[in-house]
Design a protein around this nucleic acid. Structure first.
Lengths: 203, 203
DNA sequence: GTCTATAGCGAGATAGAC
DNA sequence: GTCTATCTCGCTATAGAC
């Protein structure tokens, strides 16, 4: 399976899985190279350092997700700038899509974990990129809800992002039922979340 | 400041701060004992192992917060079983109170971090205890919103818990303004969150 | 109950052959 | 570009003096 990829890609995939499972500090490069079935020295050859590997794992998925979010947002706004549900879907759908991807599912937990890491520079790097995307959505949502103050809007968007992160990472009470496919579970999650977030934003 | 406490308590407080800042795997016992100004051997004398220290740090605050939540819930329900806002406040207030505590503020991030740790046994221990408290709240909220299916209720409570965790841990777009006291910031957070969560639950 | 000292291990990183 | 071998460091944990 992994043997279709070259050394660098195998390291990236193995690291993504392990970071999701054990965190950044909790994962050793030895674990990564062992799972990727490459030599221990390869990671320093290709990435220079562990810290650099962490950043690359991140950038890879974040760039992809942000791009999908922004293009979905542009399409939704062009279609109907007052369709709050469409805008929310543009925000939620790309995150959802990740959980259906073989390796992306791990990344969702990596993402949640990164939010829990407070000072590590990774967090700053993240909030800069991710922050810009959030501001685009804020603009679109503000257009739908002109009565909302900017402060109130930002609070509520934080709540939506929190609910999304939490639900996507599969914390909490809700567990996927045995009879339900992962895809169906995620679609249900999106549907519930959009309904909830829409009502909360309109409060 | 810390010298008012004995060795064991100093270790607990130092560990709480550092776990919040660097995570569990990212914090060494040497950092802990150095900050607590106790000898490196003291932690193994008092706690046996690092893993045990992690659990104790957790149990200490969780027991306290769960107790406060449940007693506030009992009071709210006794006062008016249909007061959804009162029930939400009982859920949110004790988490809020922690962020105003000298050491509790760190714990909120420790908590968020624990949710991001998926397989480490700590997560199971947590979901068992915390899960019971959540189910009590689910019962009370279900009474206020009898038209909601159990599944829908659980989804929405997950979203509320996510929004709370995210907001409390100070992720996201919203930053405390320089002119605003921490206490005022938290009260505003609670006020916004209750409004948002109430509307979302009633959707 | 608290110290010093150290055992024993696994980490990240690198040098240099191939 | 990938390997083996190894350096150096910091970690958890413990033994034993006080």
């Amino acid at each position: 399976m992994t043997s279709h990829f070259n050394t660098k890609e195998r390291i990236l995939h193995a690291a993504e899985d392990l970071f999701a499972q054990h965190g950044f500090a909790g994962t050793s490069l030895r674990q990564v190279t062992s799972r990727a079935d490459v030599n221990i020295a390869a990671v320093n050859y290709h990435f220079g350092s562990k810290e650099n590997l962490v950043n690359e794992v991140f950038k890879h998925r974040m760039d992809d997700m942000s791009e999908k979010r922004l293009s979905a947002l542009a399409k939704a706004v062009e279609n109907d700038p007052n369709d709050l549900e469409g805008i929310l879907l543009a925000f939620i759908q790309p995150a959802l899509a990740l959980t259906l991807d073989r390796h992306g599912g791990a990344f969702v937990r990596v993402l949640a974990r990164a939010y829990a890491e407070k000072n590590d520079g990774l967090r700053n790097f993240l909030s800069e990129n991710y922050g810009q995307v959030l501001r685009e959505f804020a603009k679109a949502i503000a257009h739908c809800l002109p009565q909302l103050s900017k402060e109130e809007l930002y609070w509520r968007m934080d709540f939506v992002a929190g609910a999304l992160t939490y639900a996507m990472a599969d914390f909490g009470l809700i567990k996927r039922q045995n009879g339900v496919s992962e895809k169906a579970h995620c679609e249900k999650a999106a549907q519930h979340l959009i309904r909830f977030a829409k009502a909360g934003l309109q409060a």
